[in-house]
Simulated scan of single mutants.
Amino acid sequence: MTHTPTTEGDLLRAELAALGRHAFLGGDRGVTYLIMAVDPAAPDDETAAYGVPHILMYAGEQADRPAFDHHEPWSAHLHGSDGDYVATIFDGSPTPLDAAADAALCARVVIAWLRNYLGNFPPRPKRFCTSN
Score class of each variant (00 low, 15 high):
G20W: 01
L105T: 07
M57I: 10
T32A: 05
L105Q: 15
F68T: 12
A14T: 14
Y117G: 05
P53G: 04
M1Q: 06
S75C: 10
V52S: 13
P66D: 05
L12E: 03
N116A: 14
T95H: 08
D98E: 00
L25C: 11
A23M: 10
D44W: 10
V31H: 15
A100I: 10
H79C: 00
H3T: 08
N116D: 15
G27C: 11
G119E: 04
L56T: 03
E15M: 00
E8P: 06
S75W: 05
T88M: 13
S93H: 03
G119T: 02
L78Q: 01
M1T: 10
A14L: 12
V86I: 14
H70Y: 09
D91I: 02
V38C: 12
I111K: 04
L78W: 01
D64Y: 06
Q62I: 12
A107C: 13
A48K: 11
P96V: 07
N120W: 09
E61F: 07
P40Q: 02
A42Q: 14
P40Y: 00
P5V: 07
Y58S: 01
L12R: 00
L97D: 00
E46F: 09
E46T: 14
R115E: 15
D91F: 00
D39S: 15
N132V: 15
A104S: 08
D10A: 05
A41H: 11
I55A: 02
T88G: 13
G26Q: 07
S75M: 08
E15D: 08
A17T: 11
R108G: 10
Y50Q: 14
A18M: 13
H70Q: 07
A103S: 00
G83A: 04
V52P: 01
P66E: 12
G60M: 09
A48E: 14
G83C: 11
A18V: 12
P5T: 12
A14S: 04
A101D: 09
Y33F: 07
I89S: 09
H22I: 02
S75E: 08
F90I: 02
F121P: 07
A107S: 04
M1E: 06
G30M: 05
A41I: 02
F128K: 13
G83F: 05
R127H: 14
R127L: 09
G30F: 02
V86P: 03
D10K: 13
W113S: 03
W74Y: 02
E15L: 03
E72I: 08
P40H: 03
V109H: 06
V52K: 06
T2C: 06
L114I: 08
P94I: 14
A67F: 03
T95A: 13
P53W: 13
F68A: 14
P53K: 03
A41D: 11
A100V: 15
N120A: 15
I89V: 09
V38K: 01
L34E: 04
A107P: 04
A48R: 09
C106A: 10
P73H: 11
P122C: 02
A67P: 04
G60C: 09
G60S: 12
P125S: 02
P66Q: 09
A17I: 03
V38W: 05
G26D: 15
L105A: 11
V52M: 14
M36A: 09
C129K: 13
A23F: 00
A63T: 10
G20Q: 07
A107D: 03
P53I: 12
P125Q: 12
G60T: 07
D64V: 05
F121L: 12
T2L: 06
A101C: 15
C106W: 05
D91E: 05
P123V: 03
T2E: 04
A49T: 07
M57D: 03
T47E: 15
